[in-house]
């Protein structure tokens, strides 16, 4: 009898303990957010988004930083998406399930946990020095692509693994080839989960600072990479160019880092405002991942 009361009490205590831990961690986060918001809200103006950094805190903005971040994200996606999804499909559907495959899979999982600065060093040695890409958008994008590649491969594999084996059987039984099965049945069914994984990987990449500092991204830039779309006066009026990929760049977290390390109070405010912008970007990406997942889950039930 007393044992029963005791375990019931224990249950209650654990419940209260759990709730207080949760409330505590949420509160810390909330305080942090409010603090940053109060610090930075005075600088959250249109001008802040459209100005280059400056020596005067009042005139400094994050134009080159957010444009750089967008450039880096696009470059990262261009390389990491096809490589990562392709490798995931290969490992899950094509590769023989032998020791070598197992070994590769374990190592990919390990790579996902390697500190990002290590990728920075690799990027510095391989892309910046050996391939002579210099401190360009391309070098930065490739470095971050390496960083998110394991995450994308793993989420592709998991997404494919979640599809019942019976769907593969059904497809092969009507005489489909492996590629037809992947292309018409597995990829469409896995797309929601793959995209969710991809977006989460990208939102990790957008906040990365260490590897980009390691490869030598600049902290002060007063110009933008060449625009990929160039408007002309004559026919065909528009030209596309990827030359911007070879220009130097900075990104939001580096800009923030730079401002935080300055002594003037004004730059501190700028940093807080920059953090708000960065947080909003990550939030938008995470929300779209959630929406995407809901959208596909609604469509496919097994």
């Amino acid at each position: 009898m007393s044992r029963k009361i005791f375990s019931r009490r224990l249950d209650k205590i654990f419940k209260i303990l759990g709730i207080s831990f949760m409330v505590f961690s949420l509160l810390v986060l909330l305080v942090l957010l409010i603090d940053v918001f109060l610090d930075g809200k005075s600088r959250l103006t249109w001008g802040f988004l459209t100005s280059f950094p400056s020596r005067k805190p009042q005139q400094a903005g994050i134009l080159s930083a957010w444009v750089g971040s967008v450039w880096i994200m696009i470059t990262t996606a261009i390389f990491a998406l096809p490589l990562g999804i392709g490798a995931g499909i290969y490992l899950e559907e094509y590769a023989r399930k032998n020791r070598l495959t197992k070994f590769i899979e374990i190592n990919i999982a390990n790579l996902a946990g390697v500190p990002s600065i290590i990728y920075g060093l690799l990027g510095l040695g391989l892309f910046v020095r050996y391939l002579n890409l210099d401190r360009s958008v391309l070098a930065g994008g490739l470095t971050l692509a390496l960083l998110v590649l394991p995450i994308i491969i793993l989420s592709t594999q998991q997404a494919l693994r979640a599809i019942p084996f019976s769907i593969r059987e059904a497809s092969y039984a009507v005489g489909a080839t492996k590629w037809q099965t992947v292309r018409h049945q597995l990829l469409p069914a896995a797309l929601g989960n793959i995209m969710t994984g991809v977006i989460l990987a990208m939102s990790r990449a957008i906040g990365e600072t260490a590897p980009l500092i390691t490869i030598g991204a600049l902290t002060y830039i007063a110009f933008l990479p060449q625009s990929p779309i160039i408007f002309l006066k004559n026919f065909p009026f528009v030209r596309f160019s990827l030359k911007g990929m070879f220009d130097p760049f900075t990104v939001l977290p580096i800009q923030i880092f730079n401002w935080v390390s300055r002594p003037q109070k004004g730059f501190f405010t700028n940093a807080a405002a920059g953090i708000i912008v960065l947080l909003c970007l990550t939030l938008i990406m995470n929300i779209s991942a959630i929406l995407l997942r809901h959208h596909y889950q609604g469509k496919i039930r097994w």
Partner: peptide
């Protein structure tokens, strides 16, 4: 051809389920 123990239609329309074999 084969029909399995547990019904395993593709998560697509009725039409697409049958058209798939033809299309491939």
């Amino acid at each position: 051809g084969m029909v399995f123990q547990k019904p395993n239609p593709f998560p697509k329309s009725i039409y697409e389920n049958i058209a798939y074999g033809l299309k491939i």
